[in-house]
Design a protein around this nucleic acid. Structure first.
Lengths: 126, 126
DNA sequence: TCGCTTGTACGAGTTTCATCGTACTGCGTG
DNA sequence: CACGCAGTACGATGAAACTCGTACAAGCGA
């Protein structure tokens, strides 16, 4: 193709799509169901996860441990899987870690306004 | 601004609050919780109810039977109660009937955009 | 290669929820 | 006042979901 021998890569701002590991199994955009997504978001812990991803993750995926959640690992696996299978997050395997990010574009396309509600959410005080 | 003393009220679009029976017990606006509301809306039958109220109820409350749902009465009671206790609907007793409407103003104030998602929802086809 | 780390799989215990039959209440009408 | 109707309350059943311990797989570094 157009790539020649003297083409030198300079800086890579973001990893190329081909460089990323394949996402774990997830529903396609057209398969997203409102009732399923709402069900996944009806749990305080999962709201916490998604909100933290929305507000504090600057274009990076984050592994399970980054959230600092005080729960056993098997519980966290359960909730991250629930979010991914509902289509809220995407997960990729980076060596040891499995990192997550919110499918912002997909969710905004299918359910505009929903993520703003999650970002504005605050946990119950008492 | 331009309103002066000789402005005469023309039509009463909505009935006065004093004419209505007291609403059944429900959470106040400030007590609405996103996780609870999303949980109430994560059920296809309840989404059907709320959507139908949003799209087809022209400023009127509607009784249980109006929806034409093919379920036993005790099931319907369960779901209408779930919606009311989550703060999605308001119910008033009119003689024999208990009529419901969506708390549009309250929900729009606390969770802007949420009801638009419900209105745009369509049940699963298969 | 031997650990250490990250996370999964599986399974049990508990809880919560949906469904719905039956019996009941409360209102309105004849 | 007796009947009928809208809807509730209660309870049983079964399915789903949350929580979490334990055991296991896979990557990475010394």
């Amino acid at each position: 193709m157009s790539a020649t021998a003297h083409d030198v890569p300079v800086v890579k701002v973001l990893p190329e799509p081909e460089d990323l590991p394949e996402p774990l199994p997830e529903p396609a955009v057209g398969e997203l169901r409102l009732e399923t997504v709402l069900g996944a978001l009806s749990d305080p812990l999962r709201l916490t996860i998604v909100r933290k991803l929305l507000l504090e993750s600057e274009a990076f995926d984050h592994s399970c441990g980054w959230f600092g959640l005080d729960r056993p690992k098997s519980s966290l696996t359960h909730h991250f899987k629930a979010l991914r299978e509902a289509g809220v997050t995407r997960q990729r395997q980076y060596g040891l870690e499995r990192r997550s990010h919110v499918r912002v574009a997909d969710l905004d396309a299918r359910f505009p306004g929903l993520l703003e509600l999650v970002a504005a959410w605050t946990p119950k005080t008492p």
